[in-house]
Protein backbone atom coordinates (compact mmCIF):
# COMPACT_ATOMS: atom_id res chain seq x y z
CA UNK A 1 0.00 0.00 0.00
CA UNK A 2 2.80 2.38 0.93
CA UNK A 3 4.72 1.71 -2.29
CA UNK A 4 1.61 2.12 -4.40
CA UNK A 5 0.79 5.39 -2.69
CA UNK A 6 4.32 6.70 -3.18
CA UNK A 7 4.31 6.49 -7.00
CA UNK A 8 1.90 9.32 -7.71
CA UNK A 9 3.70 11.48 -5.20
CA UNK A 10 7.03 10.96 -7.01
CA UNK A 11 5.42 11.63 -10.37
CA UNK A 12 3.82 14.73 -8.98
CA UNK A 13 7.17 16.03 -7.78
CA UNK A 14 8.81 15.18 -11.10
CA UNK A 15 6.37 17.25 -13.19
CA UNK A 16 5.35 19.72 -10.53
CA UNK A 17 1.62 19.30 -11.22
CA UNK A 18 2.06 20.18 -14.86
CA UNK A 19 1.57 16.62 -16.09
CA UNK A 20 -2.10 17.10 -17.15
CA UNK A 21 -1.16 20.15 -19.16
CA UNK A 22 1.74 18.41 -20.82
CA UNK A 23 -0.49 15.48 -21.70
CA UNK A 24 -3.09 17.86 -23.09
CA UNK A 25 -0.55 19.78 -25.15
CA UNK A 26 -0.81 17.67 -28.32
CA UNK A 27 -4.58 18.08 -28.31
CA UNK A 28 -4.27 21.81 -27.76
CA UNK A 29 -1.81 21.99 -30.64
CA UNK A 30 -4.12 20.12 -32.99
CA UNK A 31 -7.26 21.99 -32.02
CA UNK A 32 -5.43 25.28 -32.05
CA UNK A 33 -3.64 24.81 -35.35
CA UNK A 34 -6.50 23.19 -37.21
CA UNK A 35 -9.47 25.00 -35.76
CA UNK A 36 -8.74 28.02 -33.61
CA UNK A 37 -6.10 29.72 -35.76
CA UNK A 38 -8.06 29.34 -39.04
CA UNK A 39 -11.23 30.55 -37.32
CA UNK A 40 -9.55 33.68 -36.03
CA UNK A 41 -7.86 34.21 -39.39
CA UNK A 42 -11.17 33.79 -41.25
CA UNK A 43 -12.95 36.17 -38.88
CA UNK A 44 -10.34 38.88 -39.29
CA UNK A 45 -9.98 38.52 -43.07
CA UNK A 46 -13.75 38.63 -43.59
CA UNK A 47 -13.38 42.37 -43.12
CA UNK A 48 -10.66 42.71 -45.75
CA UNK A 49 -10.62 42.62 -49.52
CA UNK A 50 -8.50 39.55 -50.26
CA UNK A 51 -8.22 38.66 -53.92
CA UNK A 52 -5.19 37.59 -55.91
CA UNK A 53 -6.82 39.22 -58.94
CA UNK A 54 -7.19 42.53 -57.16
CA UNK A 55 -4.21 43.10 -54.85
CA UNK A 56 -3.27 44.46 -52.38
CA UNK A 57 -5.29 43.26 -49.41
CA UNK A 58 -7.26 46.18 -47.97
CA UNK A 59 -9.58 46.73 -45.02
CA UNK A 60 -13.15 47.10 -46.26
CA UNK A 61 -15.16 46.98 -43.04
CA UNK A 62 -18.54 45.47 -43.84
CA UNK A 63 -17.95 45.75 -47.58
CA UNK A 64 -17.77 41.99 -48.13
CA UNK A 65 -21.00 41.44 -46.22
CA UNK A 66 -22.82 44.18 -48.12
CA UNK A 67 -21.69 42.68 -51.44
CA UNK A 68 -22.90 39.25 -50.37
CA UNK A 69 -26.37 40.46 -49.47
CA UNK A 70 -26.57 42.41 -52.72
CA UNK A 71 -25.94 39.23 -54.69
CA UNK A 72 -29.13 37.48 -55.79
CA UNK A 73 -27.18 34.21 -56.10
CA UNK A 74 -26.16 34.36 -52.45
CA UNK A 75 -29.54 35.45 -51.08
CA UNK A 76 -31.21 32.76 -53.21
CA UNK A 77 -28.79 30.22 -51.78
CA UNK A 78 -29.74 31.21 -48.22
CA UNK A 79 -33.41 30.59 -49.03
CA UNK A 80 -32.55 27.26 -50.66
CA UNK A 81 -30.45 26.27 -47.66
CA UNK A 82 -33.30 27.09 -45.29
CA UNK A 83 -35.51 24.72 -47.27
CA UNK A 84 -32.77 22.04 -47.21
CA UNK A 85 -32.62 22.41 -43.43
CA UNK A 86 -36.38 22.20 -42.87
CA UNK A 87 -36.73 19.10 -45.06
CA UNK A 88 -33.54 17.48 -43.80
CA UNK A 89 -34.14 17.96 -40.09
CA UNK A 90 -37.82 17.02 -40.21
CA UNK A 91 -37.49 13.93 -42.36
CA UNK A 92 -34.32 12.55 -40.79
CA UNK A 93 -35.61 12.87 -37.22
CA UNK A 94 -39.11 11.53 -37.98
CA UNK A 95 -37.85 8.69 -40.16
CA UNK A 96 -35.05 7.96 -37.71
CA UNK A 97 -37.60 7.62 -34.90
CA UNK A 98 -39.85 5.36 -36.98
CA UNK A 99 -36.92 3.15 -38.00
CA UNK A 100 -35.68 3.00 -34.39
CA UNK A 101 -39.13 1.98 -33.15
CA UNK A 102 -39.27 -0.76 -35.76
CA UNK A 103 -35.77 -1.98 -34.97
CA UNK A 104 -36.53 -2.10 -31.28
CA UNK A 105 -38.82 -5.03 -31.87
CA UNK A 106 -37.34 -8.52 -31.90
CA UNK A 107 -37.56 -10.24 -35.27
CA UNK A 108 -35.54 -12.65 -37.37
CA UNK A 109 -32.47 -11.23 -39.15
CA UNK A 110 -32.68 -8.08 -37.04
CA UNK A 111 -28.88 -7.88 -37.01
CA UNK A 112 -28.68 -8.01 -40.79
CA UNK A 113 -31.38 -5.36 -41.14
CA UNK A 114 -29.52 -3.19 -38.67
CA UNK A 115 -26.33 -3.50 -40.71
CA UNK A 116 -28.18 -2.64 -43.91
CA UNK A 117 -29.76 0.41 -42.32
CA UNK A 118 -26.34 1.73 -41.35
CA UNK A 119 -24.92 1.28 -44.86
CA UNK A 120 -26.03 4.63 -46.38
CA UNK A 121 -24.45 6.45 -43.46
CA UNK A 122 -21.15 4.64 -44.03
CA UNK A 123 -20.91 5.58 -47.72
CA UNK A 124 -19.25 8.85 -48.78
CA UNK A 125 -21.70 11.56 -49.84
CA UNK A 126 -20.05 11.78 -53.26
CA UNK A 127 -20.61 8.09 -53.95
CA UNK A 128 -24.22 8.34 -52.86
CA UNK A 129 -24.81 11.40 -54.99
CA UNK A 130 -23.43 9.65 -58.05
CA UNK A 131 -25.70 6.66 -57.36
CA UNK A 132 -28.71 8.94 -57.02
CA UNK A 133 -27.78 10.84 -60.17
CA UNK A 134 -28.30 7.54 -61.98
CA UNK A 135 -31.61 7.04 -60.22
CA UNK A 136 -32.79 10.50 -61.25
CA UNK A 137 -31.31 10.30 -64.77
CA UNK A 138 -34.04 11.34 -67.20
CA UNK A 139 -33.00 8.82 -69.87
CA UNK A 140 -31.85 5.70 -68.01
CA UNK A 141 -32.93 6.41 -64.42
CA UNK A 142 -34.73 3.93 -62.20
CA UNK A 143 -37.10 6.61 -60.97
CA UNK A 144 -38.59 7.31 -64.37
CA UNK A 145 -38.68 3.63 -65.18
CA UNK A 146 -40.44 2.67 -61.93
CA UNK A 147 -42.97 5.48 -62.03
CA UNK A 148 -43.68 4.85 -65.70
CA UNK A 149 -44.15 1.12 -65.12
CA UNK A 150 -46.56 1.91 -62.31
CA UNK A 151 -48.47 4.22 -64.69
CA UNK A 152 -47.87 7.15 -62.36
CA UNK A 153 -46.27 9.27 -65.08
CA UNK A 154 -47.10 9.41 -68.76
CA UNK A 155 -43.58 9.93 -70.09
CA UNK A 156 -40.03 10.27 -68.85
CA UNK A 157 -39.38 13.43 -66.83
CA UNK A 158 -36.36 15.61 -66.23
CA UNK A 159 -36.34 15.68 -62.44
CA UNK A 160 -33.48 18.01 -61.67
CA UNK A 161 -32.74 21.50 -62.89
CA UNK A 162 -36.12 22.65 -64.15
CA UNK A 163 -38.24 23.25 -61.05
CA UNK A 164 -36.61 24.91 -58.05
CA UNK A 165 -38.53 23.25 -55.22
CA UNK A 166 -38.61 19.83 -56.85
CA UNK A 167 -34.86 20.02 -57.41
CA UNK A 168 -34.22 21.02 -53.80
CA UNK A 169 -36.56 18.32 -52.49
CA UNK A 170 -34.93 15.58 -54.54
CA UNK A 171 -31.43 16.66 -53.61
CA UNK A 172 -32.33 16.76 -49.92
CA UNK A 173 -33.81 13.27 -50.12
CA UNK A 174 -30.32 12.05 -50.96
CA UNK A 175 -28.95 13.70 -47.85
CA UNK A 176 -31.81 12.42 -45.71
CA UNK A 177 -31.02 8.95 -47.03
CA UNK A 178 -27.49 9.39 -45.76
CA UNK A 179 -28.05 10.98 -42.36
CA UNK A 180 -31.20 9.14 -41.21
CA UNK A 181 -29.39 5.89 -40.27
CA UNK A 182 -27.27 7.66 -37.67
CA UNK A 183 -30.39 9.29 -36.23
CA UNK A 184 -32.08 5.88 -36.13
CA UNK A 185 -29.17 4.28 -34.29
CA UNK A 186 -28.89 7.11 -31.75
CA UNK A 187 -32.65 7.06 -31.09
CA UNK A 188 -32.64 3.25 -30.91
CA UNK A 189 -29.94 3.41 -28.24
CA UNK A 190 -32.01 5.93 -26.30
CA UNK A 191 -35.16 3.84 -26.63
CA UNK A 192 -33.36 0.76 -25.36
CA UNK A 193 -32.28 2.62 -22.25
CA UNK A 194 -35.85 3.43 -21.20
CA UNK A 195 -36.69 1.16 -18.19
CA UNK A 196 -39.32 -1.43 -19.06
CA UNK A 197 -41.13 -0.99 -15.78
CA UNK A 198 -42.34 2.36 -17.00
CA UNK A 199 -44.13 0.73 -19.90
CA UNK A 200 -45.53 -2.00 -17.65
CA UNK A 201 -46.78 0.59 -15.23
CA UNK A 202 -48.35 2.54 -18.07
CA UNK A 203 -49.99 -0.60 -19.40
CA UNK A 204 -51.41 -1.33 -15.96
CA UNK A 205 -52.62 2.25 -15.89
CA UNK A 206 -54.51 1.58 -19.09
CA UNK A 207 -52.24 3.42 -21.53
CA UNK A 208 -52.16 2.18 -25.12
CA UNK A 209 -49.09 1.96 -27.35
CA UNK A 210 -49.56 5.43 -28.80
CA UNK A 211 -50.08 7.00 -25.42
CA UNK A 212 -47.04 5.19 -24.02
CA UNK A 213 -44.97 6.50 -26.91
CA UNK A 214 -46.08 10.10 -26.42
CA UNK A 215 -45.98 10.05 -22.62
CA UNK A 216 -42.96 7.81 -21.94
CA UNK A 217 -40.76 7.14 -24.97
CA UNK A 218 -40.76 10.60 -26.45
CA UNK A 219 -39.91 12.49 -23.23
CA UNK A 220 -37.26 9.92 -22.37
CA UNK A 221 -35.50 10.11 -25.75
CA UNK A 222 -35.54 13.90 -25.98
CA UNK A 223 -31.77 14.18 -25.45
CA UNK A 224 -31.23 11.77 -28.35
CA UNK A 225 -33.70 13.70 -30.49
CA UNK A 226 -31.83 16.88 -29.66
CA UNK A 227 -28.54 15.34 -30.74
CA UNK A 228 -30.09 14.03 -33.97
CA UNK A 229 -31.70 17.39 -34.69
CA UNK A 230 -28.44 19.25 -34.23
CA UNK A 231 -26.59 16.70 -36.35
CA UNK A 232 -29.16 16.99 -39.16
CA UNK A 233 -29.18 20.75 -38.81
CA UNK A 234 -25.42 21.05 -39.21
CA UNK A 235 -25.26 18.63 -42.13
CA UNK A 236 -28.19 20.26 -43.95
CA UNK A 237 -26.77 23.73 -43.44
CA UNK A 238 -23.47 22.55 -44.87
CA UNK A 239 -24.90 20.59 -47.78
CA UNK A 240 -22.47 20.67 -50.70
CA UNK A 241 -21.59 17.32 -52.30
CA UNK A 242 -25.16 16.38 -53.19
CA UNK A 243 -25.91 19.81 -54.66
CA UNK A 244 -22.69 19.99 -56.67
CA UNK A 245 -22.96 16.50 -58.13
CA UNK A 246 -26.68 16.43 -58.82
CA UNK A 247 -27.21 20.03 -59.95
CA UNK A 248 -23.80 21.51 -60.67
CA UNK A 249 -23.36 25.21 -59.95
CA UNK A 250 -26.80 26.21 -61.24
CA UNK A 251 -28.38 28.83 -58.92
CA UNK A 252 -31.67 26.91 -58.99
CA UNK A 253 -30.70 24.60 -56.11
CA UNK A 254 -27.51 26.24 -54.96
CA UNK A 255 -26.63 26.12 -51.26
CA UNK A 256 -24.68 28.59 -49.14
CA UNK A 257 -21.74 26.21 -48.96
CA UNK A 258 -21.68 25.95 -52.75
CA UNK A 259 -21.75 29.73 -52.99
CA UNK A 260 -18.88 29.89 -50.51
CA UNK A 261 -16.87 27.55 -52.71
CA UNK A 262 -17.70 29.48 -55.88
CA UNK A 263 -16.99 32.85 -54.28
CA UNK A 264 -13.66 31.67 -52.94
CA UNK A 265 -12.20 29.34 -55.52
CA UNK A 266 -14.01 30.17 -58.72
CA UNK A 267 -14.20 33.94 -58.37
CA UNK A 268 -11.00 34.08 -56.30
CA UNK A 269 -12.76 36.47 -53.92
CA UNK A 270 -11.27 35.12 -50.71
CA UNK A 271 -12.55 38.02 -48.58
CA UNK A 272 -16.12 37.32 -49.73
CA UNK A 273 -15.59 33.61 -49.08
CA UNK A 274 -14.33 34.34 -45.56
CA UNK A 275 -17.35 36.55 -44.90
CA UNK A 276 -19.77 33.91 -46.11
CA UNK A 277 -18.01 31.25 -44.04
CA UNK A 278 -18.26 33.46 -40.98
CA UNK A 279 -21.99 34.02 -41.52
CA UNK A 280 -22.48 30.29 -41.94
CA UNK A 281 -20.56 29.57 -38.73
CA UNK A 282 -22.69 32.05 -36.79
CA UNK A 283 -25.91 30.66 -38.29
CA UNK A 284 -24.87 27.10 -37.44
CA UNK A 285 -23.97 27.99 -33.88
CA UNK A 286 -27.12 30.01 -33.21
CA UNK A 287 -29.49 27.44 -34.73
CA UNK A 288 -27.76 24.53 -33.00
CA UNK A 289 -27.96 26.23 -29.61
CA UNK A 290 -31.60 27.13 -30.23
CA UNK A 291 -32.40 23.54 -31.12
CA UNK A 292 -30.64 22.27 -28.01
CA UNK A 293 -32.40 24.81 -25.80
CA UNK A 294 -35.79 23.83 -27.21
CA UNK A 295 -35.36 20.08 -27.27
CA UNK A 296 -32.83 19.00 -24.70
CA UNK A 297 -34.34 17.83 -21.42
CA UNK A 298 -32.66 15.42 -19.04
CA UNK A 299 -34.55 12.11 -19.11
CA UNK A 300 -34.64 12.08 -15.32
CA UNK A 301 -36.70 15.26 -15.39
CA UNK A 302 -39.19 13.68 -17.77
CA UNK A 303 -39.26 10.56 -15.65
CA UNK A 304 -39.93 12.43 -12.42
CA UNK A 305 -42.61 14.56 -14.05
CA UNK A 306 -44.24 11.44 -15.44
CA UNK A 307 -44.04 9.68 -12.09
CA UNK A 308 -45.52 12.72 -10.38
CA UNK A 309 -48.41 12.80 -12.85
CA UNK A 310 -48.86 9.03 -12.60
CA UNK A 311 -48.97 9.10 -8.82
CA UNK A 312 -51.67 11.78 -9.07
CA UNK A 313 -53.66 9.54 -11.35
CA UNK A 314 -53.16 6.59 -9.05
CA UNK A 315 -54.33 8.55 -6.04
CA UNK A 316 -57.41 9.62 -7.91
CA UNK A 317 -57.86 6.03 -9.13
CA UNK A 318 -57.39 4.62 -5.63
CA UNK A 319 -60.02 6.95 -4.28
CA UNK A 320 -62.48 5.79 -6.91
CA UNK A 321 -61.44 2.07 -6.81
CA UNK A 322 -60.58 1.04 -3.26
CA UNK A 323 -58.16 -1.88 -2.90
CA UNK A 324 -55.78 -1.06 -5.80
CA UNK A 325 -52.17 -0.85 -4.65
CA UNK A 326 -50.13 2.22 -5.51
CA UNK A 327 -46.95 0.26 -4.68
CA UNK A 328 -47.09 -1.70 -7.94
CA UNK A 329 -45.73 1.29 -9.92
CA UNK A 330 -42.23 0.75 -8.58
CA UNK A 331 -42.16 -2.93 -9.34
CA UNK A 332 -41.05 -4.67 -12.51
CA UNK A 333 -37.75 -5.52 -14.20
CA UNK A 334 -35.69 -3.10 -16.15
CA UNK A 335 -34.71 -4.03 -19.71
CA UNK A 336 -34.19 -2.83 -23.20
CA UNK A 337 -36.71 -4.55 -25.41
CA UNK A 338 -40.43 -4.61 -25.74
CA UNK A 339 -42.85 -1.78 -25.06
CA UNK A 340 -42.98 1.53 -26.87
Amino acid sequence: MTAVAARPARRGRMFGGALPYILLSPLVVFIGALSFVPTVDTTVEAFFRVSPLNPPTQFTGLGNFRALFASSAVTGAWVNTAVYVVIGVTLSVVLGTVIALALRQRFRFRGIVLALVILPWALPAVVESVIWSWIYDPTFGVMNSALHSAHLIGGYHVWLGLDRWLTIGLIEIVQVWQITPLSAIVILAALQSVPLDLYEAARVDGAGAVQAFWRISLPMIRPALAVCTVEALILSLNIFDQVYILNGIAPLGSSVMLQTYLTTFQNLNFGGGYALSLLMTVATAVLSMAALALLYRRPEAALWRWRYEASGRRRRSARSRPGRSAGRWRAGPSGCSGGW
Binding site: Y21, I22, S25, V28, G32, V37
Partner: peptide
Protein backbone atom coordinates in the same frame (compact mmCIF):
# COMPACT_ATOMS: atom_id res chain seq x y z
CA UNK B 1 4.76 27.41 -18.47
CA UNK B 2 2.66 24.49 -19.70
CA UNK B 3 0.19 26.82 -21.42
CA UNK B 4 3.04 28.80 -22.92
CA UNK B 5 4.56 25.55 -24.18
CA UNK B 6 1.23 24.61 -25.77
CA UNK B 7 0.79 28.06 -27.26
CA UNK B 8 4.29 27.93 -28.64
CA UNK B 9 3.60 24.61 -30.28
CA UNK B 10 0.36 26.00 -31.71
Amino acid sequence: AAVALSAGLV
